[in-house]
Amino acid sequence: MDALLYLATLATLAAIYAALALGLNLHWGLTGLMNFGGAGFVAIGAYTAALLTAAPSATHVGGFALPWWLAWPAAALAGALLALPIGAVSLRLRADYLAIATIGIAEIVRLFARNEDWLTGGPLGVTAIPRPFEALGNPAGQFAFLGLVALVVAGLYALAEMTARSPFGRALRAVRDDEEAAKAVGKNPARLRLQAFVLGAACMGLGGAMLTAFFKFMGPDALEPVTVTFLVWVMLIAGGSGSNAGAVLGAVAVWAVWAATDWLAAQLPGELATRAAYVRLFLIGLALQVILLARPQGLLGERMAGR
């Protein structure tokens, strides 16, 4: 039973990662937008959901004890609203300016979460966040939550597939592959990019909401860039950027490897276990390089942007 519960926990996180990877695929895979601030969009969604669903507390605004089905869409909206101004400013310019602006946005969100105690509880964070279906008790509640997350991710996947196959999706690919040609047939690249950026950020915000429900806690250091931003990049590139199925497959496969190495590292004695965390960081970087060089299209990718 314990092993089964542990697997359910891992599967829940894998599904949440799939949501983040689908968002990044809309950014990078479909549209060619480099977002290195995933942690910022996840965090704003996470805090939105945390404050809306938590029980009232004196240490932060709210909580408002609202149900998850109100809070999760609000989290997606918060991610979208954060993306709107930043995209409007940086997407008219060179592609790499967005990458630089997004690392800034992630930093600003982290600073804000840490320093605005009245809103976010500062370093103490937001505690006592309810998880959907936990009233069902331990095994059943866990599985029901996994079911809910899986359902949401399946919905996101269906939406992402519809988007990719729609005229809108074709226009995004056109902008990614040949901006001048897209312009020549009357598309507005800046506008299309902004739409894709906002939609992908909404996806990440929703992923953040599911993460808070899973952790039942949110604080300024709960979301590390290593596991939220960088790992998702490896997942997407390994799975195959441009392909939604690749994004989901990459998320599950890379998460399985990540969780397995985590388990292995935990078996090591204290000092070595800390070092193992750094070895894993090294391996994320190396994995990115090896995939870019050896199989840039990933497992299932349509093909990597390249000449």
Partner: peptide, 25 residues
Amino acid sequence: RRSLPAVLLISSFGTALMLRAVIYL
């Protein structure tokens, strides 16, 4: 070198993680 600048950027990002890991280690 023949890839898009974006691919080089992602690659440099991988290098950044590797360098940081070496410092930590």
